[in-house]
Computed example of a mutant assay.
Amino acid sequence: MSPDRNTAGYVPRLLSAAAFVTNRATETSLAELRLTQERTAVLRLLVESPAGEAMIAEASGLPAGCVRDCVLALQCCGYITSGPDGLWAVTPSGAKIQASADDAEVRLMSRGNDDVGALRQELHALIQALTPPPADPAPK
């Protein structure tokens, strides 16, 4: 049974639940690949072209310390390597795992499990509740 949609705080709670469900599912999918959202962002940038840590930090918006942790973790996984020029580059297994991460994201977004289905129904009901009724024609 759905809570009263007119209750104060209903919309923020619903939106918060939507964000939580999406975030949890994303983290679970990435964990299967030994990735985090930050590592995935770094790996995506490096698939495009080799880069140094400062360039990665600037392009991703991640703090330099986080980028350093990410590249070391990705290197330990064998997904990237550092060249003599100091630039990080994706290995063949890194390119393969990035493709797997992209596939996992597509599966996540197209998944039709009960939690997502229920959330979709609640969001649809919310949209209907927030849509104003058609205006009454002017009395004659």
Rank of each mutant, 00 (worst) to 15 (best):
Leu126Lys: 02
Pro84Phe: 15
Asp85Arg: 08
Pro92Val: 03
Arg111Ala: 15
Ser93Ile: 11
Ile127Thr: 11
Tyr10Val: 01
Lys140His: 07
Asp103His: 12
Ala89Lys: 12
Ser110Met: 09
Leu126Thr: 15
Met109Gly: 06
Gly83Ser: 11
Arg24Glu: 10
Leu87Phe: 06
Asp4His: 05
Ser110Arg: 14
Leu62Ile: 03
Arg13Gln: 15
Val116Pro: 04
Gly61Tyr: 03
Val21Gly: 00
Pro133Ser: 06
Leu33Ser: 09
Cys66Ser: 12
Gly61Val: 03
Glu58Asn: 08
Ser93Tyr: 13
Asn23Met: 04
Thr26Cys: 02
Leu72Asn: 14
Gln128Val: 14
Arg111Ile: 02
Pro134Cys: 02
Glu58Gln: 15
Arg120Asn: 13
Ser29Gly: 11
Gly65Met: 04
Ala57Cys: 07
Ala89His: 10
Leu119Asn: 04
Glu105Thr: 14
Leu35His: 11
Val21Asp: 06
Cys70Met: 06
Leu33Arg: 08
Gly61Pro: 02
Arg120Gly: 11
Ile127Tyr: 09
Ala51Thr: 02
Thr28Asp: 10
Asp115Leu: 13
Asn6Glu: 07
Cys70Gln: 04
Ala57Met: 02
Val47Lys: 11
Asn6Gly: 12
Arg5Gly: 13
Pro84Tyr: 14
Thr26Lys: 09
Thr22Val: 03
Leu126Phe: 03
Val47Leu: 11
Ser49Asp: 11
Leu33Trp: 10
Gln121Asp: 13
Glu58Met: 04
Ala101Ile: 04
Pro84Met: 06
Arg44Ser: 15
Pro84Gln: 06
Ala99Lys: 15
Val47Ala: 12
Ala101Gly: 06
Ala31Met: 15
Val71His: 07
Val11Glu: 13
Leu62Lys: 00
Pro133Phe: 03
Ser2Val: 02
Gln75Pro: 04
Glu27His: 05
Phe20Thr: 10
Phe20Tyr: 05
Ala104Trp: 09
Pro139Ile: 01
Ala17Thr: 06
Arg24Tyr: 06
His124Asn: 07
Cys77Arg: 11
Pro133Gly: 05
Ala41Tyr: 01
Arg39Asp: 13
Asp85Tyr: 12
Leu14Pro: 07
Leu74Ile: 03
Leu62His: 00
Ala95Glu: 14
Ala64Gln: 13
Ala64Ser: 14
Pro132Tyr: 01
Pro134Asn: 02
Thr36Ser: 07
Thr22Cys: 02
Arg13Phe: 07
Ser82Asn: 06
Ser60Pro: 01
Cys66Met: 12
Leu119Ile: 03
Asp103Met: 11
Gly117Pro: 05
Val21His: 03
Pro12Val: 04
